[in-house]
Amino acid sequence: MPWHIAALQQLINGLALGSVYALIALGYTMVYGIIKLINFAHGDIYMLGAYFGFYAITMLKLSLVPAMLVSMAAAALVGVLLERIAYRPLRSSSRIAVLITAIGASLLFQSTAQLVFGASFKPFPQALPFRRIQLGPVFITNRQLLIFGVAVLLMVLLHLIVNYTKVGKAMRAVAIDKEAALLMGVNIDRIISATFALGSALAAAAGILVGMYYNRIDPYMGMMPGLKAFVAAVLGGIGIVPGAVVGGLLMGVAENLVVTIGSSTLRDAVAFAVLIVVLLFRPNGLLGKKGIEKV
């Protein structure tokens, strides 16, 4: 295959992977926007979402769409409980204490999942027969199309919620100025819960999509994509919703192009190299505005 066609193919693969990163990154960015917390356990909620989907399909015998809805609802509940139990008591503590708690929560999810679901990987039930669609010199699989479709649908939904509903407006108000929002009668606790619920539901959807895409799920599958999605959020400008989408897509493409050029083991280093470069040269992200630091 000539290199430019290979690159084009990797671009398609990259966009598919990037859509997943974008879905996860949205949760990071929304939570960070509201409570300035890097929710380290977010990647593990994505993992739980995949498992919930797995059991919804295999045990409840649901088809893909209802299974995804069940999984998103369950993950939303986990996200809300996580915030209630682990993060809320620390809201006035130092950010480092909260970050450590988030790391703890992440470990807890992983080891619990390992205990409950088993340490080895599970093949994800294929709700869709595999099909390749030829597009000139390159091809796209129906699973990739599913990823694009679901991701775009969810992003549009999120956009509508954030911009046109009362909860969404309250979220934006809290993100800009917590005290002012409080004075305007916004129930901050409820808004934070809603943010966790939304973010977690998106992550769960991403988990199922990836489960289908790679055909396997395991208790540690959330670690790397979680970190990479965080990098995507930072790349786009953390706290900025469209930034997460842009960052996620860029990240997916960059990663796949590196695989074309170099070795696949370098793949995981790309994310972090990108992170360090972004933080150094454009710490507010591609879509971020420069803020004034107060003395």
Partner: peptide, 21 residues
């Protein structure tokens, strides 16, 4: 040049880069 949680993530990234190298 980074503070708090940004520094945390950057150091984590650095560690992983070393591992990949």
């Amino acid at each position: 040049r980074l503070r708090g949680d940004y520094l945390a993530i950057a150091t984590l990234g650095f560690g992983e880069i070393i591992r990949v190298i």
